[in-house]
Amino acid sequence: MSEIKQTFNSSLGKKLIMALTGLFLCTFIIVHLGGNLFLFKDDQGYGFNVYANFLTHFPPIEVVAYLLYASILVHALYGLVLTLKNRKARPVAYAVQTKSPASWSSKNMGLLGAILFFFIVVHMGDFWYKYKFTHSVGYKEYRTNVLTNQTTVTDFVPADPTFEHSSTTVNDVEIVRVKDIHTLVSTSFHNIWYLILYVIAMGTLAFHLLHGFQSAFQTLGWTHRKYTPVVRFIGTWFFAIIIPAGFALMPIVYYFFK
């Protein structure tokens, strides 16, 4: 045990944890973005609500979700520990600010991470917490005629406040009753402050991942003349541009077009 402790207490061990949790979070945001694409679907929130319900009720995903929450906390905590330790390594600052060439994001990962952490807290408090632990979220009932594929939506008020979800088929009509996170999201996205917060957060995410993704590979020692350029390409175009842009588009589209 002590050897394992030693490993993770070493500076490199801490960085290993940062890299692994970071990469895990990267895989998560791919899934998260993929799921949230339902927001762009013009189905009165049906897809999105069902998806949200699935995420919170399918046991394997629930396990992964808790791993994810732990990763966020560990990533943030170790980030903080490393930042403090790194500060201590240079107790007297230079009089002249450094002019050594290094990317802005690489030098400000702590700041970027802190903004992101704040965002994640707000974000999870508003949606995840309300959805899972309060009864403040309404319900929707989707009736879909399987033959005509026509869907009608009505608000639904369950008798039991702990009601989560039901799906039945009566006379060729599929009735899906589900918590209506979509309306909550939509309402939030029509708030200008939310819009600003989200856009800033996604900008932050972009810079964080611009350095973070490829940096994780460097930390793990997975660099190679042939593959490192590929990692950098993915880190830049996919993680630092496409993903944050995709997320940022959601509040923008809702605010301006829906």
Binding site: S11, K15, N86, P101, S103, S215, Q218, T219
Partner: peptide
């Protein structure tokens, strides 16, 4: 010493142009 955050400033300032690849090899 502090820990590495892969900024690359060291590589840029090294008078002998030692590369970050070394750090990666060591990590591995």
């Amino acid at each position: 010493f502090g820990s590495c955050t892969n900024t690359g400033a060291c590589e840029a300032e090294c008078p002998k142009e030692i590369t970050l690849t070394n750090i990666s090899r060591m990590n591995n």
